[in-house]
C-alpha cells in the first residue's frame, strides 16, 4: 500500500514543523510539502497532488475555510482536514468541503489515522 501523501498548510512555522512531526510519526503517511498561506496551498496542491491536506483555519489572505472550498471544488480534489485551536464541537466545517475538523490539541498519529479511515 502506498503512503498517504500529505500537504501541510499553516502560517506559523513551529506549527508546520509540529504537524510534520505528527504526520511522520503516523504509519502510512508522508509529508510531501508545506504551504504558509491559503493561496500558496492552492498552487502547492496543484503541483504536488497530495492525497490529504492538513489546513489551518486561520491564515492570512484567504482563510483555511475558503482555501478548502476552492481546493475541494476541483476534480480529483484531495481530502482536506481543517485544523485550529477551537474545540471540535465548537467548529462547524459544514459547507467548506472539509472531510473533518480536528482540534490542534487533539492531533496525534491516532487521531490522524482515525480521521483518515473515516474520510476515505
Amino acid at each position: 500500500m502506498t503512503d498517504v501523501r500529505v500537504l501541510i498548510v499553516d502560517d506559523q512555522e513551529p506549527f508546520r514543523l509540529a504537524m510534520a512531526a505528527v504526520v511522520e510519526e503516523t504509519a502510512g503517511f508522508v509529508v510531501v510539502g508545506m504551504a504558509t498561506t491559503g493561496e500558496e496551498s492552492l498552487t502547492a496542491a496543484a503541483a504536488l497532488l497530495p492525497d490529504l491536506v492538513l489546513m489551518d483555519v486561520n491564515l492570512p489572505g484567504i482563510d483555511g475555510v475558503e482555501a478548502t472550498r476552492r481546493l475541494t471544488s476541483a476534480a480529483d480534489a484531495p481530502v482536506v482536514f481543517l485544523l485550529s485551536t477551537y474545540d471540535e464541537d465548537e467548529f462547524d466545517a459544514a459547507g467548506s468541503g472539509a472531510a473533518a475538523y480536528v482540534a490542534k490539541a487533539a492531533l496525534g498519529p491516532d487521531r490522524l489515522s482515525e480521521a483518515w479511515s473515516t474520510a476515505s
Binding site: Q12, E13, P14, F15, L17, A18, M19, A21, V22, T85, K104, A105, A106, L107, G108
Partner: peptide
C-alpha cells in the same frame, strides 16, 4: 498535546 506543546514552544 504534542502539537500545541511543540507549536507554542516553537
Amino acid at each position: 498535546s504534542f502539537l500545541v506543546r511543540e507549536g507554542v514552544a516553537g
